[in-house]
């Protein structure tokens, strides 16, 4: 086989007259197994160059870089999501408050209808009895009952006070 072409290319390579494409031909030629003896010594050079072309970074390099550059972006996106949801949180809070008030109001109205509480509006009072004498009798009897009850409890208190006092004297 004629290696004139390769020898010429090699000479032009040393003179920096080869094109990028011709230099690629040289690298490919010197990377094959069958290289004539007189050109063998240059295999090391071109094989080295071809070998160096294969050098690359580890597989996790991309992840490292993307982690470093995308960190702030992810953060920003999180912020915007939270930001976008803020009106919904507000709306939900307002709805909750309105619901609570509504439920409370409904509850109190229902209570009003079933068992009315004590009314302090004296003007709204109506007469229970038509005959004033009957009313007076009723009030008198009620007051007597109360008075009797008070007296009983008062006596009891006095008795127990006396007993306690007697005990104190004894001591």
């Amino acid at each position: 086989m004629d290696y004139k072409y390769i020898e010429q290319l090699l000479e032009r390579y040393w003179q920096c007259q080869t094109s990028v494409e011709e230099e690629r031909i040289l690298r490919d030629f010197f990377s094959q197994k069958e290289v004539p003896a007189h050109l063998q010594r240059y295999c090391a050079l071109f094989a080295f160059e071809k070998n160096e072309e294969e050098l690359h970074l580890g597989a996790d390099f991309d992840r490292k870089i993307l982690n470093r550059i995308e960190e702030p972006v992810v953060k920003a996106r999180r912020n915007t999501i939270r930001f976008r949801l803020t009106p919904f949180y507000r709306a939900a809070a307002i709805v909750a408050v309105v619901l609570c008030l509504g439920l409370a109001a409904q509850h109190s109205f229902q209570n009003d209808t079933k068992q009315p509480g004590v009314s302090y509006n004296y003007a709204g009072y109506q007469d229970t009895y038509s005959d004033p004498q009957v009313a007076l009798d009723q009030v008198s009897s009620a007051l007597k009952t109360v008075s009797h009850g008070l007296r009983e409890s008062g006596l009891h208190n006095v008795d127990s006070a006396l007993v306690d006092g007697g005990n104190d004297d004894k001591m």
Partner: peptide
């Protein structure tokens, strides 16, 4: 471009770890 950058950095620094750091810094 990372591997091309790495090979140039390695050719200049002659140290694989330094070259990797430089590529990271370059990309950032």
């Amino acid at each position: 471009l990372k591997n091309r950058l790495y090979r140039l950095a390695l050719r200049i620094t002659l140290d694989t770890l330094d070259a990797e750091d430089i590529v990271q810094e370059t990309l950032i």
